[in-house]
Design a protein around this nucleic acid. Sequence first.
DNA 1: TAATAAATGCAAATCATTCCTATTACTAAA
DNA 2: TTTAGTAATAGGAATGATTTGCATTTATTA
Lengths: 145, 145
Amino acid sequence: MDARNWDQAIRKLGKKATPQRKAILTALSQQDKPATVDEIFIEVREHQKTSLSTVYRNLELLFSQGLINKQGFPGEKARYSLKRDTHEHTLVCIDCRKIVAITGCPLESYAVEIGLRENFVVLDHRMEMYGYCQKCSQIRGRVSD
Amino acid sequence: MDARNWDQAIRKLGKKATPQRKAILTALSQQDKPATVDEIFIEVREHQKTSLSTVYRNLELLFSQGLINKQGFPGEKARYSLKRDTHEHTLVCIDCRKIVAITGCPLESYAVEIGLRENFVVLDHRMEMYGYCQKCSQIRGRVSD
DNA sequence: TAATAAATGCAAATCATTCCTATTACTAAA
DNA sequence: TTTAGTAATAGGAATGATTTGCATTTATTA
């Protein structure tokens, strides 16, 4: 999914390929980690006139259509990221909020197994791990606790 | 952790064992699935005079002290549940929202492994699976899609 | 190029959650 | 047991992210 194809991708959803939508997808493709709505808004606005509500509306659209991911805790701002080919898990530093993508999914066979056991048609799952990144764990080691 | 010990449990945190706090813990212990703040508020209010802000404050307190779990998506209401001995994962029906607790955690050894690989001190993780429960998958099978 | 349905921008509305402050009530000590 | 002191509560107002209504603009498609 590269930049020249945003147009196609949006039309495939039966939606209009507005400059705002293309700019949002471009902004997402430039982020190296899941971004908040205002981060995306700021980035988009540098290249394209837009409004916050347009960004909100379109992120929600793209999420509901399965083009992007939405994650975060309740009470925290939502974070969005482009859906890459492989489904992704993350490792989040609870101190500096650094996010690292984990490649590979340890839950594929487990999902099938649990579906059979509980009589569920399991379609998807979310998994995130929390802890301290190397830097923050060193800082914490030095000072208190 | 049973009802008669809420008093002890709260005091162990260095907090006052108010009737509101005890009632909140009792309410949580009666829920069979993670409950929203207003569900808990309604339940608590049947037995004990309280206010919404008290319920919010105490759920947050109990969560920060590790007595209860907090989960949910950004933009959705947070859901709280009593922390049982074993850490818990859930299976959520995306149609009727039924929640089933999965016993056993398939991620324990993986958490250690990924921590070493990525230089993270992994402290915790969240994992939720989504799909259709038996009932809803049958309904969907019959009608459209 | 014109018709039209969809999308945008802006401001106002919502809704969960947090905060403020006067009042109340646990708790520890006498 | 009473009382002082402090933490906790109630209730309402404030906050902040997200959503919505509506007038205006724009992408599509014939």
